[in-house]
């Protein structure tokens, strides 16, 4: 049987919100170590990889590995009923044909419980190699969100280039061109405000802004976002969840015609 109790249930709600615009049906894989998700959007352009360690939970029991096949629009409807300070409990039998969800609130004394039918989802698993990337940039997630949102008015493609000058986001469209340059900045006392750029060699790649904007739905999960790029490879956009896990997005580049 599988049983997990998360004092800060809101973390799980934010994870659901961070992927539900990209994919409809997902398997949540449960093992003795973690809950994890790997799924692609229907166009196979973007991949989401989520991991939440068992150490994030107050109680975690998973007798044998199982996959919980969920329809995210339905899960999202249920999580709308979760209060901000609720504790979340998940339970499933080894047969994994339904999932029990409970939202508990000690202060108000309420317990809401839901039983959700699970589905068998055929999912293609991609083998994502553990690569050393040529550029790694850490920046405030709110700043990344603002940049990719603002650049949408200029065009639908964003050129991301990492050079000695800094990290540059550019978009070109009918009305003209916009560039936003982020320089390394470690002046602030708060580490989450820092911009750090590790560059082994310059990289310049083009990406669809629509997808970059989908990914920023993970912003509430983490004050910082990590961008990793290598020439001719999909970009990795990682939102660490404290020391307990992450939501990572992989996005295939747009090629020059």
């Amino acid at each position: 049987m599988f049983e997990a109790r998360l004092a800060n249930g809101n973390i799980f709600k934010m994870i659901v919100e961070s992927i539900r615009e990209l994919v409809v049906d997902v398997n949540i894989d449960c093992s003795t170590e973690e809950l994890s998700i790997q799924c692609m959007d229907s166009a196979h352009v973007a991949l989401v990889s989520m991991s939440l360690s068992q150490s994030a939970f107050d109680h975690f029991r998973c007798d044998r590995s199982l996959s919980l096949g969920l329809n995210l629009p339905n899960v999202s409807k249920i999580f709308k009923m979760m209060g901000r300070d609720d504790t979340m409990v998940l339970k499933a039998e080894d047969s994994a044909d339904k999932l029990m969800l409970m939202f508990e609130n000690d202060k108000s004394g309420t317990i809401a419980d839901f039983e959700l039918k699970l589905m068998a989802i055929e999912a293609e698993q991609l083998g994502v190699p553990d690569t050393a990337y040529k550029c790694s940039i850490s920046m405030p997630s709110s700043e990344f969100q603002r940049i990719v949102r603002d650049l949408q008015v200029m065009g639908d493609t964003c050129k991301i280039s990492c050079t000695k000058e800094g990290l540059k986001f550019s978009a070109t469209g009918q009305i003209g061109t916009g560039n936003i340059l982020m320089r390394q900045n470690v002046a602030s006392e708060k580490e989450e405000d820092h911009v750090t750029i590790d560059m082994e060699e310059p990289v310049e790649l083009n990406f669809a802004l629509r997808y970059l904007n989908f990914f920023t739905k993970a912003t509430p999960l983490s004050p910082t976002v990590i961008l990793k790029m290598s020439p001719g490879l999909p970009i990795v956009i990682e939102y660490p969840i404290e020391q307990l896990g992450h939501v990572k997005y992989y996005l295939a580049p747009k090629m020059e015609e």
Binding site: M40, Q125, L126, V128, P129, N206, A252, P253, K254, E257
Partner: peptide, 14 residues
């Protein structure tokens, strides 16, 4: 602008 690549062009199935 530009042709959108897919992830299968980079990653194999596991």
């Amino acid at each position: 602008s530009g042709l959108q690549a897919t992830l299968q062009q980079y990653f194999g199935y596991s």
